[in-house]
Design a protein around this nucleic acid. Structure first.
Lengths: 212, 212
DNA sequence: TGTATGTTTTACCAACCGGTCAAATTATCG
DNA sequence: CGATAATTTGACCGGTTGGTAAAACATACA
């Protein structure tokens, strides 16, 4: 007898692992470019090359897929902030934080847009994660930044708004990609937009924080 | 005999003008918090206090409402950039540009989110506006900034990325409001987030551009 | 007041969408 | 091989959604 859902089996099959990955990849593609409500299970199923009921054999509901994607993204998305080291030099730490975030915007734009979509609509599925783990991590790193400022290693500034501004400027290149490219047009400026952004942002933040 | 659609009449009635405004207000509310596909005509009709067929008497389709809203927002959204004055002092111009954009994020968050939603999903309805009027305006102002830099009034920097960074940092407080508030928690820092953001961003950009 | 025009409502429809069911097919393993 | 469990599919269902038809109702004005 077939067990109702793959999730109920004790050990996941090789097929299960492969298909779930396939589905999540397809779901990321679809969700990130159409939003949650704008995406249909049929679209995801087609992108994953399988029938709708087959997809629903692996994920009970549309929400389940979305949920798993969001959880995953939220975790990896915070990695650059997590590795910011209180013991390191402020200049190097902030510079590499910006660089890492910008690389993520370049290499994982779908993940960024998925997250942006969720927040834009009021984060209906992840309020707890925001006020819980996210807030805790930011509080911790804000304290690090504040310590740097107190020690005179960096200009006095509101650490929370500093973090917000790094988030927003870097993610802009993923979330608002269409706009950025429309404005830059077909040009070298467009092709090199990530390098140019890196140079500009480095200058902006390092000078803005009187780090050099 | 009733004319099929209000739009076909030669002069718009007083009632038409009032109702269309009422509908657009309701549509803004609904679209900005649910996205285009996430919003239903019924929701908008209810928010506007009328029946669905009645609403459809004023706007033929859901797209028509959305379209008109987007056009409107796109225009007013660029006003702060439009008034940036090549003859003014760079410090005052940039400072007031930031302030104006931040005020718009505070006072018109729904408009900001409507626009963000549209861009996030690839701007399917407004690609022409982006590569046309928007690009032209940005090109013009980028030239102004470049002139300031050449004259040594402001640090050398890529003017396009400067504009992007002002857009992203300010709009962040509207588009990512939920996240900002979750991180700041229930506190004075949350209540005063716009003043604090203004102070921080002013410092960041003025020092980052060696303007003081 | 009567008539033409403008506005609103009730009832409705076809397409879509998330999800189920039962049966068919395939993989796994003793 | 044979049996059992895992996977896949086609048919289907009930609720939602964008939009229509037609008639009732309101308004303006000669």
């Amino acid at each position: 007898m077939a067990i109702p859902r793959a999730a109920k089996t004790q050990r996941r099959t090789r097929i299960q692992e492969e298909k779930e990955e396939l589905i999540l990849e397809a779901a990321l593609e679809v969700f990130s470019s159409n939003g949650f409500r704008g995406s249909t299970i049929d679209q995801i199923a087609e992108a994953a090359g399988m029938s709708k009921p087959n997809l629903l054999y692996y994920f009970r509901t549309k929400e389940a897929m979305h949920r798993q994607l969001i959880d995953r993204v939220l975790f990896t998305w915070l990695e650059p902030l997590r590795v910011m080291d209180a013991e390191g030099s402020p200049e190097a730490e902030i510079r590499s934080y910006i660089r890492r975030k910008l690389e993520m915007a370049r290499d994982f734009p779908r993940e960024s847009r998925l997250f942006a979509n969720e927040i834009l609509q009021g984060a209906p599925h992840i309020e707890d994660e925001l006020t819980g783990p996210l807030k805790e991590l930011v509080d911790e790193k804000a304290e690090v930044i504040r310590t740097w400022a107190k020690a005179g290693k960096i200009a006095e500034c509101d650490p929370y708004h500093l973090i917000f501004s790094i988030w927003s400027t870097t993610q802009h290149y993923a979330d608002f990609d269409v706009q950025v490219r429309a404005v830059l047009g077909r040009s070298k400026a467009d092709e090199n937009r990530f390098e140019n952004a890196a140079l500009f942002l480095e200058q902006l933040f390092l000078d803005g924080l009187k780090l050099r």
